[in-house]
């Protein structure tokens, strides 16, 4: 229960405006970055984006890292979450790399 009090300060401590700015900029960056992509790169790009949302693994590490060692429910699910998150990250980047490797071979 260490974190309970931290969460009570959540809404007051969290600067909703800062986050809104990040949100807004990231949305437009995402759109900007994707436009003008040649069709041949759609699959690698989708796969690369797939790997990037594996960043969710950080959430699972945080949840796992601050779990009481005797909370077996949280430990089990947290463990599973870290495994799945790692699968997403590692698998995603390796698959993308393999796809792009094939383009590279010929000039």
């Amino acid at each position: 229960m260490i974190l309970l009090s931290e969460f009570q300060g959540f809404l007051t401590s969290l600067d909703i405006w800062d986050i809104s700015f990040i949100l807004l900029l990231a949305v437009f960056l995402g759109i900007e970055v994707i436009s003008n992509v040649p069709a041949i790169l759609h699959t690698p790009l989708m796969s690369g984006a797939n790997a990037i949302h594996g960043v969710v693994i950080i959430g699972s590490i945080i949840v796992m890292g601050h779990t009481e060692p005797d909370n077996y429910f949280a430990l089990t699910l947290g463990f599973l979450a870290v495994v799945l998150g790692t699968l997403n990250v590692v698998g995603g980047f390796v698959v993308t790399h393999r796809m792009l490797q094939m383009f590279k071979k010929k000039k």
Binding site: L23, V27, L29, G30, L45, H53, V55, V56
Partner: peptide
């Protein structure tokens, strides 16, 4: 990371 992938 999440928003970028979400919008892209």
């Amino acid at each position: 990371g999440g928003i970028l992938v979400g919008s892209a």
